[in-house]
Amino acid sequence: MNRREPNDLKRAYAAWTIAGTSLIVAAVAGSAIIAVVGGTADAGTLVWGIVGIASLLEALVLFAYGLRLRRRYVNQVQTYETRGDYREDDGSNRPRVPLLGDGQSSQRSTFEGL
């Protein structure tokens, strides 16, 4: 079974997490970025501005990379070989057909309370 696709999705989420952290760093250095772009930065502000600009660029690249990985996962055609195994029978006489491509999800809706 090919497990590349779920790993791509996990890598996309990890890239987005790191991109979010980089955006926090860029937000902290926001006024320094404005000072660097405006040309009014002193030595310390210049360092923070460069760190902020680098963090902002890193966040943009990682976000685009995550989108690319997610698009590749979503556009992958799911076949009987790649969608995962059926879950074991738990004795409830309900079918346990995988609803998503990785075979780990199952239907959880019950109508006992109606």
Rank of each mutant, 00 (worst) to 15 (best):
M1F: 13
A27E: 03
R71H: 06
A32G: 06
E58L: 13
Y80I: 15
R3C: 06
D102I: 01
G20T: 09
S22T: 07
I18E: 02
G39T: 02
R96F: 05
D85M: 06
T79Y: 05
W48N: 15
D8K: 13
P98R: 04
A41R: 06
Q104F: 02
L9K: 15
T21P: 11
P6A: 04
R68N: 07
I53T: 09
L57A: 14
W16M: 09
V51S: 01
G52L: 00
F111E: 07
D8Y: 15
N93A: 14
A12C: 00
G49N: 09
P98K: 05
V97R: 12
G39Q: 01
G91C: 05
L46E: 11
M1P: 03
T40S: 13
V37C: 06
S105K: 06
R4K: 12
S55G: 12
G101A: 00
G84M: 00
T110Y: 08
D90V: 02
G30S: 12
Q78R: 12
L69E: 01
G66D: 07
E81V: 11
E58I: 08
Y65L: 15
N7H: 07
F111N: 14
G103Y: 00
G52V: 01
A26Q: 10
G101E: 01
T82V: 01
P98G: 01
L67P: 03
D85P: 05
E88Q: 09
L114P: 03
L99C: 05
N75K: 13
A12R: 04
R108K: 14
Y73D: 05
P95G: 03
I34D: 05
V28K: 13
R94N: 10
Q107C: 08
S55E: 09
D8I: 05
S22V: 04
Q104L: 10
S55N: 14
A54R: 02
L9S: 11
